[in-house]
Simulated scan of single mutants.
Amino acid sequence: MTDIECNGARPHLLLLNWRDTSHPEGGGSERYLERMAEGLASRGYRVTMHCAAHDQAPADEWRRGVRIRRRGNRLTVYLRGLQAVLRTRPDVIVDVQNGIPFFSRLVARCPVHVLVHHVHREQWQPVLGERLGRIGWWIESRLAPRIYRGCRYLTVSLSTRDELVRLGVAPERITVIEPGVDPAPATHAEPDEDPVLAVVGRLVPHKRVEHAIDVLARLAEQWPKLRLEVVGQGWWAENLRRHAQLRGVEDRVTLHGWVEEQDKHEILARSALHLCPSVKEGWGISIMEAAGHGVPSIAYRAAGGVTDSIVHDETGLLAEDFEDLVECVATLLRDGELRATMGAAGRARARKLGWERGIAAFERAISRGYLVP
């Protein structure tokens, strides 16, 4: 099979993902998938998203033309996903591999596309410990590529594509579809006279928000009024509060938790810099959201997809290590003209990255079936 075949009916697309954006731990990767889903629904596809259940949303919901079915917990969602494949018999499946895929290829009778935001090599052991971490990495790096051999892969950055190639996925089976970014909404905020560092993301260990707190502590003497504002929620929040206390900067760190979308943009608009100290990112949608407000971002070069979302020395900076991260922040805080130039370049780039371009590319990609039988 090389194309979606649906006997004249609207093609049915089944998306298998462990979370959706309403989930307390939902983030940029979930937003990416949902924007693609909504775009395809508007183009005539019947779109069903299967994801884990949680207490902040109903089991069944329709959202912008997409049917969302929430079943199972963080573990059983995978079994329930296989049941959804068998029950609904879709025309095409997008199996989202957040470290662990749904193994839908084992039961599917239609084309399966694997969506990988980033490879989790560096995250397994810090999250699960050495033994379970090795098992997780073996599944991701050895077992999954074997099971999905012949399937097409979708990813969000050239960096992740290169990592997948190193895992044995043939380059011709991989399609890169970068995320879009919504136009930055109008805000009331202006850049604060006292410099603000912003971090936007889930509060989990691999996001390494501690590094942003450490940067603040290191620069506190040079910039006595420097502050850090963190937008996002997650189970690691209390650890971050304790870390700020240990570093003696708890009065300069604001953990906002979850905020409304407009409030997030107000915080970004008043910030001098956006930091993304994560271990690994597939792309970094928050980087482009900050760019939309003319706010440069700084991230670690080794973090993968940030090397695609940040144009080094043009829209932001890529640091080699923590000491370099501190120096990058200090450089841009000292040089307001350079910061403004990078901000203007980032804003211009963000304006070019609309979602429609990505949705069209996503549709073209999923309309093709297996590369080999």
Rank of each mutant, 00 (worst) to 15 (best):
E38R: 15
Y370V: 10
Q222I: 04
E314Q: 15
H211S: 02
P277N: 08
A350H: 00
E363R: 15
V196M: 07
F322T: 06
W258Q: 09
E229S: 06
E130Y: 04
R89G: 08
L325A: 05
I366C: 13
R218D: 10
V329W: 10
L273N: 04
V279L: 13
V306G: 02
I147H: 01
N98E: 12
Y32F: 13
G336P: 01
H256L: 08
G26L: 00
K280C: 03
R89H: 15
E320K: 00
N239P: 01
R131H: 10
L268G: 09
I298G: 07
G39V: 11
R242N: 14
P195Q: 10
I267P: 04
T160C: 12
E172A: 10
W236A: 06
V181N: 03
D95C: 10
L75R: 12
R131M: 07
R252E: 03
A37D: 12
V107R: 06
G81A: 13
T155P: 08
F102W: 14
C328V: 04
L228P: 00
F103C: 14
E356I: 04
R69L: 14
R19C: 00
R339F: 01
V311C: 15
E250V: 13
R109S: 11
W283T: 05
A186Y: 01
K280D: 11
P183D: 04
A220G: 07
V47A: 12
E30V: 00
H118E: 14
T331P: 00
T307W: 02
Y300T: 08
I100H: 09
